[in-house]
C-alpha cells in the first residue's frame, strides 16, 4: 500500500517524507490573540520580514511585493485583510509563502507557531459563520483546550469581501 503510494505519487511522497498525511497537517500562526492555521500542502516556505516594494493598483491589504531569490511575490497583510488594526512589524513578524492556484503569495502574520496534525474529526465545519456569504474560515479545530481557526487559502487570497473573524468566532 505504502509502496503503491510512493510509486504513483513519488513527488508528493517525497514532500510528505516520513509523515502520514499532508492533508491533515496545518501550519499555525498568530494574529492578535488568535491562532490560525493553513494547510501545510500549500506552504512553500517561511521567511523573515524583508524590504517590501510597493506596487500600484492593488487593495490596501496587499502591501507590495518582495523579490525572493528572483521570484516576485505579492504580500498580503492578513490583519488588514481581516479589517483588523494595523500593527508595526517586529522581529517575530514573518512571511508565510503559499502557492495558491499556481501563483505565489506571501502572508504577513504576527508570528508562526507550529505544525499541527489535525484529523478531520477534530474539525468543526459549521455551514455558515456570520452573515457574509463568503468566509475564509474553513473550520474550527479543537486541539487540546485550544481552538485553531483553519483558513481556506484560496478564499483568503481571492478578492471577495470577507466577514470579520470577530463575527465568526463562536
Amino acid at each position: 500500500m505504502a509502496e503503491d503510494l510512493t510509486r504513483t505519487a513519488r513527488a508528493e511522497a517525497q514532500a510528505l517524507s516520513e509523515t502520514d498525511n499532508v492533508d491533515d497537517m496545518y501550519l499555525t500562526f498568530a494574529i492578535g490573540g488568535e491562532e490560525y492555521g493553513v494547510g501545510i500542502g500549500g506552504v512553500t516556505e517561511i521567511v523573515g520580514m524583508q524590504r517590501i516594494m510597493s506596487v500600484p493598483d492593488v487593495p490596501a491589504y496587499i502591501r507590495g511585493v518582495i523579490n525572493l531569490r528572483g521570484k516576485v511575490i505579492p504580500l498580503m497583510d492578513v490583519r488588514l485583510r481581516f479589517g483588523m488594526a494595523e500593527r508595526a512589524y517586529d522581529e517575530r513578524t514573518v512571511i508565510i509563502v503559499l502557492d495558491v492556484a499556481d501563483a505565489p503569495v506571501g502572508l504577513i502574520v504576527d508570528g508562526v507557531s507550529e505544525v499541527l496534525d489535525i484529523a478531520p474529526s477534530q474539525i468543526d465545519r459549521p455551514g455558515q459563520f456570520g452573515r457574509s456569504t463568503k468566509t475564509a474560515v474553513m473550520g474550527l479545530a479543537r486541539v487540546g483546550d485550544r481552538v485553531t481557526i483553519l483558513l481556506d487559502a484560496e478564499v483568503l487570497v481571492g478578492d471577495g469581501d470577507l466577514a470579520l473573524p470577530a463575527e465568526m468566532v463562536v
Partner: peptide, 15 residues
C-alpha cells in the same frame, strides 16, 4: 501572476 494579474497598464515586473 495571481494576485498581481489585474494590475492595469503593465507588462510585468522588472527585477
Amino acid at each position: 501572476v495571481g494576485r498581481l494579474a489585474r494590475v492595469r497598464a503593465s507588462w510585468g515586473c522588472a527585477l
